[in-house]
Nucleic acid binder design. Structure first.
Lengths: 393, 393
DNA sequence: TGACTTATGCCGAACAACGACATATGATCG
DNA sequence: CGATCATATGTCGTTGTTCGGCATAAGTCA
């Protein structure tokens, strides 16, 4: 029954899973303690919030601690890549309790891929000793633009056969719960955002892997754009890419030069043998001078594109992730070099360009958070209700 | 006393100045008629809302119409350019009732310029037969980045001497009312947005004049960025600008090639005499082939930069304004040519690139709307409360 | 003129939030 | 070891907001 503003606000504060006292909650939600008491009672009765043991000694009477009943349900969070899927279970607070990577191929089309994912999810649930009825929500990040209102993938270049396929409906045949679908980089942005960059209003998450994409956070909210195509920066034209022909048919695309495939292509032109983007990381780690240089050049190209993005939205943080980012410094150095050289002083003085901290789980963490928003009817990403308008003086 | 949510919601609906019946208001604010009645009574009593005559015949009893008491106060709205200022008076609904353009020079520094503006505002008030005590709010759009929280201009390249000058405080010495300061292109974006593009979630306003800047609207809200530098796209690097040195010290900046000054420079290199950006418009209108071509080239360069912006935020509308935009087709054609060629099909299929419709008053209209938000304690730009969460089933 | 339609005003009921008071529970100190 | 202090808890009456219902007003239309 938590449908009032106060209950929502309480959940919005408690959604991170940490426990709090009534006084803390009253302060955080800007209500009186009696109001918080009343609503907490309902939430506890409904099994949504748990009353924990008393706090350790302060001076006065110890207070009760309240926290989200994170174990009351399970969220299935999936990150889909071109050749694999990471299927994870999280508790209602977003803590990952189990995860497993399976091999799939998105070009096989939606049914077989989703079937494999759903099977894996069932297996994980069984292994965790959880009945399927415990599933409270399902979410998936996919490497395609997603239309915000409908959750449908639209014109996905990497995923022929998925165009406007109703993933939500398909999943609901198995798990009849809220289903969230969003772009893979968007969910990474959320994952990194809620774990490390809660306070930042504008943030950019860049994924450098087989392709290149961005997750865009503005005013603490994900940006989807009119067609779900926001953040599709792989086909920005950069000078470094020259006349190289991209798979999209254009020339000079960022992706054709700076993605895993693009770097491999650069190296191949120099006679260095690489099959795939994955090899590039191995080569750099092995100390290959050519590979290191190519990655740094790729970083510069990305930096060139980012300089423009910075001029447009002036973010305070840019997080670099994706498989290629795991080479670490060379890529980051290339990006920083151009970003700080080409950006206006005002926009770059406070700007931080950092590597993603959780390459493996950022995606599913973000998915879980977005699903949680739906399960609890919460808005936005922030830890607090929303910094909108303060109510009291 | 209108400080409750319901009163705010009512004002948020009525802010456009149109009149509505109680039933319409109840529907728009999602409250019962009795609630609306109660709050309207207070608002009418407070002189904030006016009760108008009855509606013309429907079938049943005619209803009363209610509208914002637009004449209860005056908003002073100013648009500051490098060499001039447009000082306007609007009613509380944002309707421009008087305006006058005065000559100033921003390089003289803030005090003399603001003094001239304030004097002009006083003159306009006197001419309108309005006492100064009628002024309910003051706003100004300035050609500089503005820090959102403080309203201070930061590191303005065009306005040396204005850095972190407290415009709000200075104005309040004369008019002790809410004072709003924002970037000139931001306010133009708001002005165009509320008059023609209310429904669009993502929108870009591009001003092409002496310099080049953008106003960025995402999720129906203005984007200021971490340092107020969002939309400062004049110094994006574009290939067309080649190695041309920009006043910012970098090379290849969009502004060095595609702004009024940049176009003049291009023409000068071809031996065509122009003193200033203003001349460019005259030359095109006079049928100069060189000037027309140069403007179209400028459009292409802008299109190149915009293609990147489109990839990042996927707007549904891009509005082109500024003095150079008044040449009309050549500029727009150049922009469209590159935008539609370089953008991903998904992002550009629904995208409209249009000319600003109100070159003269869009700025002050936007200023007035932003001031109105402060005067009535409203959030956002939208006509409706915010499409956030629907309250009933 | 009377039926019909639509708006209005007013009132009591339901609900949410608050502040205050009495009480509970531990630490701390003499 | 008991008194005191500090802090948290539960409950209750008050206040204010919102809702739905009912009687009534003010037009149109036949």
């Amino acid at each position: 029954m938590p449908d009032t503003t106060t209950s929502s606000d309480l959940l919005a504060v408690l959604r991170d899973g940490r426990s709090r006292t009534k006084t803390e909650l009253a302060e955080a939600t800007d209500r009186s303690r009696s109001t918080v008491t009343a609503h907490l009672a309902k939430l506890v009765e409904g099994g949504i919030v748990t009353q924990l043991e008393r706090t350790a000694a302060t001076k006065g009477r110890p207070s009760m601690l309240y926290a989200l009943a994170a174990d009351a349900g399970v969220i299935v969070a999936v990150e889909l890549g071109a050749r694999h899927a990471l299927v994870a279970l999280t508790d209602l607070a977003g803590g990952v309790t189990a995860h497993h990577r399976i091999v799939v191929d998105v070009v096989d089309g939606p049914e077989p891929v989703l079937a494999a994912i759903l099977t894996e999810a069932r297996d994980l649930l069984a292994a965790a000793g959880r009945p399927e009825s415990d599933v409270a929500g399902f979410g998936i990040g996919i490497p395609a633009p997603v239309e915000l209102a409908t959750g449908l993938p639209v014109s996905p270049p990497l995923m022929p056969g998925w165009d406007r396929f109703d993933i939500r409906a398909y999943v609901r045949l198995v798990f009849d719960v809220p289903v969230m679908v969003d772009n893979d980089v968007n969910v990474m942005a959320v994952g990194e955002g809620i774990t490390h960059w809660v306070a930042e209003r504008e943030m950019l998450m860049i994924k450098v892997a087989t392709g290149i994409g961005a997750g865009v956070v503005v005013n603490q909210r994900l940006v989807h754009g009119a067609d779900g195509a926001a953040g599709e920066i792989g086909h920005i034209r950069v000078s470094a890419a020259g006349d190289r022909v991209c798979r999209c048919g254009q020339t000079g695309c960022l992706e054709s030069f700076a993605s895993g495939i693009g770097i491999a292509r650069t190296l191949a032109e120099q006679g260095v043998d690489t099959d795939d983007g994955r090899d590039v990381v191995a080569l750099v780690r092995a100390g290959s001078i050519e590979a290191t240089r190519a990655v740094r050049e790729a970083g510069r190209a990305i930096g060139e594109a980012l300089a423009t993005c910075i001029s447009l939205i002036n973010p305070s943080v840019i997080v670099i992730g994706g498989s290629i980012a795991s080479v670490g410094e060379p890529l980051l150095a290339g990006i920083r070099e151009v970003v700080y050289q080409r950006s206006q002083p005002l926009a770059s003085k406070q700007l931080r360009v950092v590597a993603a901290t959780d390459l493996e789980l950022a995606g599913v963490t973000g998915v879980s958070r977005l699903v949680q928003s739906q399960v609890f009817h919460l808005a936005g990403l922030g830890a607090r209700p929303t910094p909108a308008t303060q109510r009291r003086s």
